[in-house]
Nucleic acid binder design. Structure first.
Lengths: 144, 144
DNA sequence: AGTTATCACTTTACTACTCAAATGATAATA
DNA sequence: TATTATCATTTGAGTAGTAAAGTGATAACT
């Protein structure tokens, strides 16, 4: 019988949770005709616009190529605009994109929160946030 | 300025962390010629063998179709065997698969653990495990 | 006995990602 | 002014996942 470490158990639970909740979130966002990834990207743009593609790629942990294709789709749907300045393309939300994000925003945040509100007290959530933040920041460092 | 909820902040951190650490893990497992998903599947098989494909699919949160392809690949590399009994295929590790898993096992668990050992005390890890377990179990319920 | 239902698994068509080579606009150099 | 370098973005080829239709072996009716 193989012996697990505490860390590996945490790792497994987190992987399962993010996978399951990502699926549920995709299902949920269908009503707004969005995917979880698209919501994430639109939200980041709304916070940081105007932002370049490479900066955006880094924020959402997708490769350059991935972002390029993703934005092409979002541009086709007229949710974002790319304004080229020399070699850099600055991304911003169109009014339509902004409206779509605003429509989905509250519902999606409530949806995300529900996973934690259902099972944890406010105090526990604060603790969880502190712990996971430390872990995430250190893995972010490692990724470079 | 949009207002985040605590839950949505936790959600984002977790998504980022699992994505980053999954990438790092894939990189790490290259030395064993495995992906994170394959390691996960081989480990589940070693624990539950003989196991059917649908049971396995549920354990690793991949669809039936996904598992079917994945196992076809693993079978081609002779890491697993499928033994058909009526309509059900029972999956088990081959000696080669078992050896490969054993080779990678300790290193991979140490690797997974390192994310938490680096930043959290043993006590904090226990707390994190308890909290994330509760959250994951409830999302698992919802997935059905 | 012949038809229909069931059920685990496979396959098709599609999507979205990856890496790495190509593109294209400008800057720097000769 | 022609050539080369730079660098953000795009694109080509490949991989791995999904949903849903298809397959095939057996069970269960009529």
């Amino acid at each position: 019988m193989k012996k697990n470490t505490l860390g590996s158990l945490i790792w497994l639970r987190m992987m399962r949770f993010t996978h399951e909740s990502n699926n549920l979130s995709n299902e949920f966002l269908k009503q707004f005709d969005l995917t979880t990834a698209q919501f994430d990207v639109l939200l980041q743009i709304s916070i940081f616009e105007p932002i370049t593609q490479s900066e955006l790629a880094e924020k959402v942990t997708v490769t350059q190529g991935g972002i390029s294709r993703m934005l092409t789709r979002l541009e086709q749907e007229q949710l974002i605009a790319r304004h080229q300045d020399w070699k850099t393309k600055f991304i911003s939300l169109t009014p339509k994109g902004n409206e779509k994000l605003n429509n989905a925003f509250e519902a999606q945040l409530a949806f995300q929160s529900s996973f934690f509100d259902e099972t944890l007290t406010k105090e526990e959530q604060k603790i969880l946030y502190k712990l996971i933040s430390r872990v995430q920041k250190s893995s972010e460092q490692r990724s470079k």
